[in-house]
Nucleic acid binder design. Sequence first.
DNA 1: GTCGATTATCTCGATCGTCGAGATACTAGG
DNA 2: CCTAGTATCTCGACGATCGAGATAATCGAC
Lengths: 156, 156
Amino acid sequence: MPDESERRELVLLLRRLSVELDAVSQRFAEEHGLGRTDVRALVAIMDAARRGEALTAGRLGEAVELRSASVTALVDRLERVGHVRRVRDPEDRRRVSLQLSDTARTAGAEHFGGLARDLIAALEGYTDEELAVVHRFLVDMTTTTMRHARETPPSS
Amino acid sequence: MPDESERRELVLLLRRLSVELDAVSQRFAEEHGLGRTDVRALVAIMDAARRGEALTAGRLGEAVELRSASVTALVDRLERVGHVRRVRDPEDRRRVSLQLSDTARTAGAEHFGGLARDLIAALEGYTDEELAVVHRFLVDMTTTTMRHARETPPSS
DNA sequence: GTCGATTATCTCGATCGTCGAGATACTAGG
DNA sequence: CCTAGTATCTCGACGATCGAGATAATCGAC
């Protein structure tokens, strides 16, 4: 097994990639006068919308790890600049579902969608077998990382 | 080219992985009573140390995208809890290089080193050819992402 | 209809980031 | 040497954000 150093380098490359992805979010924040948390929230809402479900304030708080008070202030900010709208759930009127405005949707599509398009384009030269390897790699990294993210496992 | 959807899913998996990696940092922050920015700074300092160079306050500000005044407050916080030390550069006494304390180094190694170890272990079942594919993938994704992170390219 | 549980909001204190001004130290030119 | 110019870091004040606890509105169960 002489490729220990190669595997180690892969992990470093992965961290570097994560840093660069973070920088993309940061640039989006700067361009639109938003904070780092605001972008995280918008991404969470967009992700939920992609899955077909409208996020409520509470769920958003769980997604971005914020207390309910901060979520209220957060939604206030986003609503003030016209990125989201508060919509009372008619079935359960305690709930407030968050709906993206068209401007936010297009802005997000412009920025992140453009990156996604380029990333997909960069994968054109890969064969099906290679894509399968990458898929396995991503799944393995994600599951391993999730174990650490949930809670520090007793390593002993 | 029937694998358009596969490539699209790979990008989604990559974003999900990025989110989970972020959650690891968040957990580290909670466990040690630090803010999100503080962790980013510590990681930047550790990365620089890994490359053999001691980060100055100014460079750290560039790395985490903060103004010099914020860097001062940031280093104040980290120094107060004993994670870094300010060291005047004897050659250029305007500069303040930041040195990690042993406690911070061990804490970081415990948390992120543990994750890195598990990630490397998860790659044991990969052949050299597969690792090469992953390497190419990571480089391609990083270069493509960096173009977007630097500045929004005129897409027209 | 009343009681407990859930959801979002409000208020307050503490923390974080930025702006402007200032202090210290290096560098170049006379 | 010494002055001006530049670079790096620090300090004080202000605005914005986050977390804890209390409050209001709504739902479900009895």
